[in-house]
Design a protein around this nucleic acid. Structure first.
Lengths: 342, 342
DNA sequence: TTGTAGGCGTTATCAG
DNA sequence: CTGATAACGCCTACAA
């Protein structure tokens, strides 16, 4: 079965390549019978259009690239899942590149996506190397920063306000009556979102007068466990712990369980993300719901509208909301003050 | 800044397009000085090669497509993360398409990936429509089935033996002394891997004489919780529950915790997957470790070797292993027999 | 409604 | 080591 192109189909049907091309693109100005004839011929020879040729001729690849730190964290996976879904609906494909925790790799990955033909890019966060940014504008490739709602690099941002999120969380805890809370957060280096959340937490702490003690951990359950071990091992005079990520909160929850520290009776626990399991843990986790899926859809739509209709890409600020469940409650008179054995 | 191609560079440097192309592809037969001259010119005009043109000329896109049910389950996300990583190392890009629980969408998605230029495809499981399979061979596109280790459709498979996994799990429970176990598994329709695991469980049950009661749930924590609620609500005369997915096990664990059913003292719990948190839960989950990352690397390497060197793609059977932690132990004299309030 | 012809930006084959 | 030049497969005015 030899490869047949529009050319071969033209011969086979006695038509011209132009007509073949027209039915290929569902042009309206084709005789119904002619179209059928072509369609049949395509079927018989097992015709498959060559995407590269089409791309070359139209200079459109219908491909959008996304670079994220990793796929292994469900927050990114969920986001990209939504993006992919929406993109597919509009005939676009999603190419994914991960930086695997090496932000300095972002520039290279972006370059690879461009060399691949990505028409637009989805970036994570607002921090990007100047070279990367210059490359983008130099080649006129539209891009949008996600998980943040503003940037100072000229790129539009579609996401939420991390500082507001951090502040809202601490304020919630304060309103419930907590005066001393341990905050455990993911790696702060190379992660502007985490830094923003922390700054929000500090702002909220100042405003409400609650005292916070920060603690960094890796961004996984194990990190949460480790942080909790330290915390519970020390003289922990806190009545609540706020995890700036639900995965970390899960680790804290596990460790608390191991030490028979009752949540929320003895210790309140609040997370951030609202992952798949957050509503079903024991106890169900009070957390900040991030509009991950909506963000993905919004990003995809903005990009598609820009590419298809030339609409400009506007920054969008999506609202996050606290979802109260059962892991936070008014603290008892005394804080959890004695070290508790594992 | 007008778009400059190899042509423009040729003019600019007074060289020919051939030479430009040579330095572009790091051909060795180019004078060092000439190369520098070209490189500088490229820099100055901000030259960017056109991937579509290159693809057209070489008929290589360096792109591989993967279609998975969803990115929202970490088992797939982890797999693709490994694939992407390995692929990138060899200069290939990964395009992802999800079926979102509609297996009938697979065929369409595969078509889209082809129209995009994917040179090879990564499929999930061994069940695929005949039309899809025919299309693959018709267009000569290599593909590999994953998460299974054999197929009857002519495609190579790279993965593990799900039946053996199910059997090993139940045997492990049997060896520890369990005689009656509840098995909760994900949706069985359109998921040959789950069906295989179940068949393995049944085989193991027959061989060891343990009695198993199956229960289907959705493939998430909520599903595990729901299954556990039923289970614990009934007169549950089981001493162990085996979840064919760790996410489901997490739901069971949460519900057990809620009902103050001690794991593993009163009830043993075993999972399958070995996710990120499995080693850190309370108690740490005894589970079957699936070689997800290794599978991803293996798939990527096989495909790359095939594409780059023409090696044939061989099926590979990766070993899964039981990792004993602390959620399973010898049952007490009596099974958990009374219904326990929530 | 259909046909003709030129071009999209690279690569690759030959000469030189 | 370098230069012409012909593909690559499809799209798209412009004609008919």
């Amino acid at each position: 079965m030899k490869k047949t192109g529009v050319r071969g189909l033209a011969k086979a049907t006695g038509l011209s390549v132009a007509t073949i091309s027209r039915v290929l693109n569902n042009a309206d100005n084709v005789n119904k019978q002619t179209r059928e004839r072509v369609l049949n011929a395509m079927r018989e020879v097992g015709y498959a259009p060559n995407p590269a040729a089409r791309a070359l001729a139209t200079s459109r690849t219908k491909t959008i690239g996304a670079v994220v730190p990793t796929l292994a964290h469900s927050i990114f996976a969920r986001f990209l899942n939504a993006v992919e879904r929406e993109l597919a609906q509009h005939g676009y494909a999603l190419v994914i590149a991960t930086t695997e925790g090496r932000p300095e790799a972002e520039e290279r990955r972006v370059g690879e996506l461009m060399n691949l033909g990505a028409e637009a890019l989805i970036l994570s966060g607002a921090e990007h190397s100047k070279a990367l940014l210059d490359g983008l504008v130099g080649r006129g490739i539209p891009a949008v920063c996600t998980s943040v709602c503003e940037t100072n690099n000229g790129l539009p941002a579609i996401g939420y306000d991390n500082a507001v999120i951090g502040e809202a969380a601490i304020r919630h805890l304060a309103e419930v009556g907590h005066r001393s809370v341990a905050v455990v957060h993911g790696p702060v280096s190379d992660n502007d979102r985490t830094r923003l959340r922390i700054s929000g937490v500090e702002r909220g702490a100042r405003a409400t007068g609650v005292s916070v003690s920060l603690r960094e951990s890796t961004l996984d359950v194990e990190g949460g466990v480790a942080a909790a071990q330290q915390l519970f091992g020390d003289i922990a005079d806190v009545t609540a712990v706020l995890s700036l990520s639900d995965v970390i909160a899960l680790g804290v929850l596990f460790e608390a369980d191991r030490r028979r520290i009752a949540v929320p009776d003895e210790l309140s626990l609040m997370g951030c993300d609202d992952l798949d399991w957050s509503a079903h843990s024991a106890p169900p986790l009070t957390t900040v719901r991030l509009p991950t899926a909506r963000m993905g859809i919004c990003v995809a739509q903005s990009l598609v509208r820009h590419l298809d209709h030339g609409d400009s890409i506007e920054s969008v600020r999506l609202e996050a909301s606290i979802v109260e469940r059962n892991s936070v409650r008014r603290p008892r008179r005394h804080a959890l003050s004695a070290a508790r054995p594992a």
